[in-house]
Every structure is written in structure tokens, then in C-alpha cells.
Amino acid sequence: MPPSCEKNLMRIMRQMRRPHTRLPLHNNFLLSAAFAPSSRRISSTARRSDATTGTSEAAQSKSSNPKPRKPLTKEQRDFLSSALRVNQTGELAATLIYTAQTPPLVNAHPHLRPLMAHMYDQEAGHLKTFNSLITKHRVRPTALYPLWSLMATGLGWSTALMGREAAMACTEAVETEIGEHYNNQIRSLLEMFEQWEAEGYEVGPEFRDLISTLRRIRDEELEHLDHAVEHDAKEARPYWLLTSIIRAGCRGAIWTSERV
């Protein structure tokens, strides 16, 4: 994350925290760490291997003769097109959820306006990124676009009507699934890279850029998750029912749009 963005985020988080400081900072952290253990663990391993790929890249640029690049296999191309398709669908859904949630939520809780605007802007940025990636790499967009639009809008709107806690529980549930989903993709890409490098091939900027894009977006999704928990997502009643329905829905949607 660029430092300016981080600063911005810290400022927003401080603003958010001031009006109602129910949980001290370390508590928040513990909570989110406890409730999203798998994604946290994966994300830290992903970051560790960042460091190793970074050094190997530096070593590579010193040796002047470029290594060859291996053509993608059919399976790899299938994986990549379904990955980009499902990501674009997910980000479309995210922008629609926040769009639908914002008016009722901000009416009732004006202090949430900057947070909602901040999260929406990030989702809009993610959507733009994947829109251009699927055009560039000639991936077919999801065929169920109208269905996802309708469901995302419905989910955002209904959770916002149920109140602030439910809306935040919705964000928490969605971002937990999405964060894990991005982590799985990052892991598969790292496996691809490892295999290429073991066989003496080069990874190349196209895939280096792709994986750093995925990591940046994954980190932003996990920030959304933290914001949601800070804003009492866990207070939603019945929390377990709401989040497990939404999470199951997300997994179903991911499964479907990887295929259709």
C-alpha cells in the first residue's frame, strides 16, 4: 500500500473511532484476528514469499541474458479466465452492495458517510481494474450479470434496512469470503511462478503486475473487514445466522461465476 493511501486510511479510521469508542484498538485487532484466522494466516505467508520473489527478481535483472517464458497451458488459461471473470463479478457486486446500503445507512447514522464513501471508492477502483483486465486479456464477462446485480442490490439494501450492525455484518461476511478467495488465487499464481522458475523460465511483468494487483486489492478487502468489525458487525442479531447465510451465498456466487 502506498504511504499516502495508508495515511489517508489512518485518518479515516481515527475519525471513525472518535464518536463511539466501544472497543480499544488492540481488542479490535484481536477480534478480527480471531474471527478471520485462515485469511490472516494465508495473507502473512503470501507476504513472506513476496520478499523471496522480490530478491530473485533483483538477482534476475542483474544477469543480462533474459530467460525464456513458457506458454500457458490450457488449464492455466482456464484458471486465469475464470479467476478474472469471478473477480470482476465480485467487484461489481461489491459496488452495488455499498451503493444500495449507503442511503438508508447514512440517513440513520450520518457519521458513517466518510467510511461508506471510502469503501465504495475502493470497490469502484477494483471494478475498474478488473474491467480493464478482462478486456485486455479477452476474457468473457459473466453471463449472469443481471442476476448478480439484482442479488447484490437486494443484499445491500435489505441489510441496510436491518440496521447498522447488520449492514456491517454483511460487509464482514462478504469480505471474509472475498479475502479468502483472493488468497486462493494468489497462492495458485505463486505455485505457477515456482514451477516456471524451477524449470528455468521467467515469470515476466504481466504476471508480476497481476499478483501485486491481487495482493493490493486483497489487503483493501481485509481493511473493509476490519472496518466492519470496528463498527459492531458482531453486534448484529442473529449474527451467526446472518453471516453464515451471506457467506454461503458468496461461496455459491463465486462457484457459479467461475463457471458461467
Binding site: 517464458r69 513458457k70 506458454p71 500457458l72 490450457k74 492455466q76 488459461r77 482456464d78 484458471f79 486465469l80 479466465s81 478474472l84 486479456h137 479477452r138 476474457v139 468473457r140 515476466g204 511483468p205 504481466e206 504476471f207
Partner: peptide, 14 residues
């Protein structure tokens, strides 16, 4: 069925 598989610029398919 190569239709609309990911099109790579760095690792083009044969």
C-alpha cells in the same frame, strides 16, 4: 474450445 481463454501477452499460447 479455445474461445475466450485468458490471452497472455508475456506467455502467448502456441
Amino acid at each position: 474450445s479455445a474461445l475466450r481463454r485468458y490471452h497472455s501477452y508475456d506467455h502467448p499460447a502456441p
